[in-house]
Structures are given as C-alpha cells and as structure tokens.
Design a protein around this nucleic acid. Structure first.
Length: 114
DNA sequence: ACATTGACTAATT
DNA sequence: TAATTAGCCAATG
C-alpha cells in the first residue's frame, strides 16, 4: 500500500528524534537504522538512508528537537548551524570548541534507544 | 524514464 | 585534522 506509507516513515523518524534526551545526540545514520528496525518490526517497508532522514527533518522536523541530530562527524546541519549550536550549548552538549564552526563530540554525546 | 539534488557516510590522500 | 572522491537512497523536475 502506498497511501500513508510515506507518512508512516515520517512519523517513525520523528518518534525516534523525540526520544533523544537533552545534552545527547544521535547521528543521521543511527536514526535511519533505528527507524528501519522499527518499520521492519511493524511489517512495513524498511527504508535505510541517512539522507532520507535529513530530507524528512527538512520537511517535517519543525515539531521535534532536530538540533539533537547531527552528522557522523559531529557537524551540525549547515541549514541552521548557529541556531542548533546555541541550543546544544544551552543543553550542555559536549562541544569541541566554541565558535560557529564548533562540532559536537559525538563519541561522548551519542545516544541510542535503551 | 532520465537527470539532478540533498539537514549523509566512509574511505582515501 | 582537513579536503577529496565515491557510494548511497529517495524526492523532484
């Protein structure tokens, strides 16, 4: 079935992002894997792409803490880097420096569903 | 149906 | 550590 399928994928992504606690982050790839896992367990088509997560966030990410999702390098979305950085700093997320080029210390801040 | 684009990643240099 | 290259997968025109 095609109808609602896309929507279901979007919801799954948002659900995962909502679970990320303050001061922690998840990478796009990690979110993609968890989502694929969830969909598979649900009997739906498992999609698996970091870029797809990014696309979903760009379109429907406004209702979730999108700044807690970063690239594998700890870079913040170029789309709204300063805004994301400000939010992360306010939450006490471990950063590698303090200018606008700052990156998240992924090794230290990464989190995934427990 | 084909080409381009993108809030990605990993390997290489 | 940073820049480059190639691979990836779905959305869009």
């Amino acid at each position: 079935m095609r109808a609602g399928g896309d929507e279901e994928y979007v919801e799954a992504v948002l659900a995962v992002v909502r679970q990320i606690p303050e001061g922690r982050v998840m990478t796009y790839g990690l979110v993609a894997e968890v989502v694929a896992d969830t969909l598979a367990a649900r009997g739906s088509t498992p999609r698996g792409g970091p870029r797809q997560v990014g696309t979903v966030m760009a379109r429907r990410g406004g209702s979730v803490p999108w700044w807690r999702v970063v690239t594998a390098d700890g870079r913040v979305p170029a789309h709204a880097a300063s805004r994301a950085l400000a939010a992360l700093r306010a939450e006490g997320t471990p950063l590698s420096s303090d200018d606008d080029d700052a990156r998240v210390r992924v090794r230290r801040a990464v989190w995934w569903p427990q």
